[in-house]
């Protein structure tokens, strides 16, 4: 672990400035809305006013639970799938890769709606409710949102991991291990996977940003009362505070990951030199 507080503070400064600019711009461009008089710390959904604090913490916790559960399950699923794909013959691997390219281009909205319908259809035809499809009052749902949110990152991670695996399998250390008489199974699990995991960390930014955008659409369609819904309906100061609540911890994660990938890259360069 190496982490410098200075560069994090620098990043934080630019995030705060950016959010300030974004928060002020709409009012600057199109004028403030004088018709709706409301408290700064309130936001309204369909003409009903809600206070921002302290509800927002509960919502924040709920959203983040879904987010990280989806991320973890997606990562695990992707790794397991990659492992089984590498054991397949070459032509099947190519088919899997082609299929992934197709699945990757499905919009997130499509997957959310299709999954919702599948659950409804199963319920209608068999009477078994697999999982609740919408939030009702204070009954938060977990299974379906996590599943939906996990699908697209799984596909992306799976594809990246497959590509990395392809590169990795032609490296000298694998050949040496093969020559030593170790089985393919053993090499893949013990040696190749460890190296892939470190390279996979480099793609954290794309995955995280992509998942945050998906989280929003999942929350909206499933009617979850999460942080993204609050972000959507708040204005001005409340918007900035909510945005900062998301930005600060995530930027912390980014900073840690970034400084560590730079370290890994430097090590590789030194080894190469």
């Amino acid at each position: 672990m190496n982490f410098s507080l200075k560069s994090y503070l620098k990043r934080l400064r630019s995030i705060i400035l950016g959010i300030l600019i974004i928060g002020i711009l709409p009012a600057l461009l199109f004028g403030t809305n004088t018709q709706v008089e409301q408290n700064v710390w309130e936001y309204s959904i369909r003409n009903l006013k809600y206070p921002l604090f302290p509800d927002v913490f509960e919502k924040y916790q709920y959203s983040m639970t879904i987010f990280f559960a989806a991320l973890l399950s997606g990562l695990v699923a992707a790794l397991i799938l990659t492992f089984f794909t590498t054991l397949l013959p070459r032509f099947l691997q190519r088919i899997v890769y082609g299929l992934l390219t197709f699945l990757e281009s499905l919009p997130d909205l499509f997957i959310v709606v299709v999954l919702q319908f599948t659950v409804i259809y199963i319920y209608q035809s068999t009477g078994i409710l697999v999982a609740n499809i919408s939030n009702v009052y204070n009954n938060p749902i977990y299974l379906l949102p996590i599943l939906t949110l996990a699908i697209l990152p799984t596909i992306q991670l799976f594809k990246i991991a497959l590509l990395l695996m392809k590169d990795e399998q032609h490296k000298p250390y694998v050949t040496v291990a093969r020559a030593m008489g170790l089985s393919r199974f053993y090499i893949t699990i013990v040696h190749v996977f460890r190296n892939i995991l470190t390279s996979l960390v480099q793609y954290y930014k794309t995955i995280f940003v992509f998942m945050l955008s998906n989280l929003f659409i999942v929350e909206y369609v499933f009617n979850l009362n999460g942080i993204m819904n609050v972000l959507l309906y708040t204005k001005g100061v409340a918007f900035m505070v909510t945005a900062l609540m998301i930005a600060i911890p995530f930027s912390f994660l980014f900073e840690i990951a970034e400084s560590n990938t730079i370290k890994v890259n430097k090590q590789e360069e030194e080894e190469a030199a």
């Binding site: 940003v209 972000l231 930005a247 930027s251």
Partner: peptide, 12 residues
């Protein structure tokens, strides 16, 4: 600055 901030906000 704006790019850094927009990373955490969905475009929609």
């Amino acid at each position: 600055d704006i790019v850094q901030a927009t990373l955490y906000l969905p475009t929609a």
